[in-house]
Design a protein around this nucleic acid. Structure first.
Lengths: 116, 116
DNA sequence: TCAATATATGAATAACTGTTCATATATTAC
DNA sequence: GTAATATATGAACAGTTATTCATATATTGA
């Protein structure tokens, strides 16, 4: 019956895990954030915006790629609330949504021991 | 010539962004970490392991799905160093790799204002 | 050695995602 | 109003990824 040498301990952990598992909806929300910042091209946009707000033209200049591709990526980052946008005349000016964004990036970079 | 009303400011930011952009390799490493924890099924495994180490059988019990699917996900999490494994007799016992893993999860949950 | 159990893995398929291209919308200047 | 500029978006295609199924490996106990 025992499936492993730690049946009692692991079973309790599994029960606790089920009891404390976040709701599907919250898992999906967290997942969406990580997915948004998991593409290299989107990561580069976030790294670029560390320097301050920029309009699309200059983001393209900073990260490369086509205007269309960057614009699609900006939408995904915006939908997942990692960046915010404001219109300024003909331009849309983007910036990081809040201090959490940089904090997450820095935490992972620390974890990986890579300087950014 | 000016592409936006903040040409000077944005151009400087873009130049700084290019100068401070992490190397492709580092972007890829950071990207890989976020990708690893961006799938709902893998996120659930991490949430489950908050309760302590568990063998595969009990992880399956905690998060659902088939043994094979969970095993594939465990490999991805392991390859990206989010979890670690040790053999214990017939079982492989998994646990979170270090305190950074939970810290990142909690940071994002705080950002989203969802309790986990 | 053999059987039983726990876990891992390769291949195939289905679903998802990023980019490109063409085009649409919005703002400004005339 | 029209032209020019900045940005966004829909569709299509290509590349990627998660799951399933079948099977392989590793450990234990007999």
């Amino acid at each position: 019956m025992a499936v492993c040498d730690h049946e009692e301990q692991h079973h309790l952990a599994a029960e606790a895990a089920k009891a404390n598992m976040p709701q599907e909806e919250d898992v999906a929300r967290v997942s969406a954030v990580f997915k948004a910042i998991s593409e290299p091209s989107r990561l580069k946009i976030l790294f670029a915006l560390r320097q301050g707000e920029m309009c699309v033209y200059h983001i393209v200049e900073a990260v490369g790629g086509t205007q269309s591709a960057v614009s699609h990526q900006l939408r995904i980052l915006r939908d997942s609330r990692m960046i915010k946008a404001r219109r300024d005349g003909q331009n849309i000016v983007y910036s990081l949504a809040d201090e959490h964004v940089l904090a997450v990036l820095e935490l992972v970079c620390t974890h990986l021991n890579c300087k950014i």
